[in-house]
Structures are given as C-alpha cells and as structure tokens.
C-alpha cells in the first residue's frame, strides 16, 4: 500500500456527502458558551475569594481582580505577571500569570494552562501549556544573565525553554520552563516567571 493508496483510502471516508451547515448555529452555540463562561466568572467573583479559585485538580492562579488593591502587574507583554504568590507543592511561585491555572502538580513537574479551554484536559499532553520541570541535566542554549542569575534559552518552532540552576538552600538541580510560542510570552516575562520559582524540599528530578 503506497502513500497515495492510503490517501485515496482516507479520502473515501473523509469525502462523505454532508448537508450544508449554517454558521449561525455554530455562532449561537459559541456565544452561549461565552455567556456561560462570563456568568461563571462573575459568580466566582461574588464569592470574593481574592480572585483565586481552588480547582479539584490543583490550585488556580487566575487573577481577575482589576479593582483597587489589585496585585501589582510586574510584566505585561501578552501575558501579565502579577506579584502574587501561589503554590503548586513542592514548587512556589512569586509571580502569577493572569489567566493561567495550575492543571497538575507532581514532585517532578507542574503543568499550567491558559483558562480559555484551548488546551487538552489531559495533563500528559503538553501542547500549548507551561510546563515547569526539575532535573539534573546540564542547561544549554543562549545565555542570559539577569540580576546576578544565569538563564539559558533554547527552543524549537513550537516552544521556548528557559532553564536556570536552583538557588542555594534549594534542592540542587535545574529548573526549566517550557513556554508555548504564540501564547503572549516574551523573553523578559519568561525570565521573570522562571526567576520567581522556588523549589521546595519535596521536589524530585524528572527523567530526560
């Protein structure tokens, strides 16, 4: 079976005749979902839990509070980092990216996802997500020094990875964050966010 044969075979299933669909129906469904989301967020705001909602799968780091007393915005590229601490044990973050939430936390890694539902609900699927990793592999890539600390920047077409060594008093190793491209992170905000990570004693090196 050649590649053309396979494509022809797939075409036989893909090309089934289907009735025309009015985009208005898709739009109506989408708007309805948007309204539900807005109502959900409004109700969450009424609870008044300082804009931090606890999800069943972990700790939400959503920051919706734009009012007086809102956390200071540290960096704003496409992603806003606010000076608000959150924990994804055994990791602690001094900065919180607005509109992103912790999806999964393990001793070896933390996964943080945008709140718009654009990424997979499977924590093992990393597409479009922030992935914080801890390992013992040497960092590599372009060197960036910031405030006396060294960072390494590398990546391919879909992701940029920043790495830095843990600080004295933390378990020895390298913390890496894999940032999806096109999600609004620029290099300054990537460095700021990585620099805000503290590795607790329960962290373990991942493989790879």
């Amino acid at each position: 079976m050649t590649s053309d044969d396979l494509k022809h075979a797939l075409e036989s299933v893909a090309a089934t005749e289907r009735p025309a669909t009015d985009p208005a129906a898709d739009l109506a469904r989408a708007r309805s979902a948007a309204r539900r989301r807005t109502r959900r967020r409004f109700r969450a705001g009424l609870v008044g839990v300082a804009s931090v909602a606890v999800l069943a799968v972990g700790v939400s780091v959503v920051v919706d509070d734009d009012g007086p007393g809102a956390p200071t915005v540290i960096a704003s590229s496409g992603v806003e980092l606010v000076a608000k601490t959150f924990e994804a044990t055994p990791y602690t973050f001094d900065l919180t990216p607005r509109g992103w939430s912790v999806q999964a936390q393990q001793p070896t890694a933390v996964t943080i996802v945008p709140d718009d539902g654009s990424t997979s609900s499977d924590p093992d699927v990393f597409v479009g997500k922030l992935v914080i990793l801890f390992d013992a592999n040497p960092p590599d890539g372009r060197v960036v020094d910031r405030d006396g600390r060294r960072f390494w920047v590398s990546g391919d077409s879909g992701y940029t990875t920043l790495a830095t060594r843990t600080t004295p008093g933390e378990p020895s190793g390298v913390v890496r964050i894999q940032y999806p491209k096109g999600a609004g992170w620029d290099e300054a905000s990537m460095v700021d966010f990585l620099a805000s990570v503290h590795v607790g004693p329960g962290a373990r090196h991942g493989l790879g």
């Binding site: 299933v13 898709d26 989408a30 948007a34 539902g117």
Partner: peptide, 26 residues
C-alpha cells in the same frame, strides 16, 4: 473529524461543534 472518528458522523459533528466553540472562546 470524520477520519478521526472513523466515519462516525454524529461523533465527528460533536467534535467539530466543540472545537468551534473553543475557537470562539479563544
């Protein structure tokens, strides 16, 4: 979607509708 759903047109329609809604939200 029809290919992913192995020709199950109803399932494929569900997947497309959900996808379009997600796209609108993002």
């Amino acid at each position: 979607a029809a290919l992913l759903c192995a020709g199950d047109e109803a399932f494929a329609e569900d997947v497309v509708q959900t996808t379009l809604t997600r796209l609108y939200l993002a």
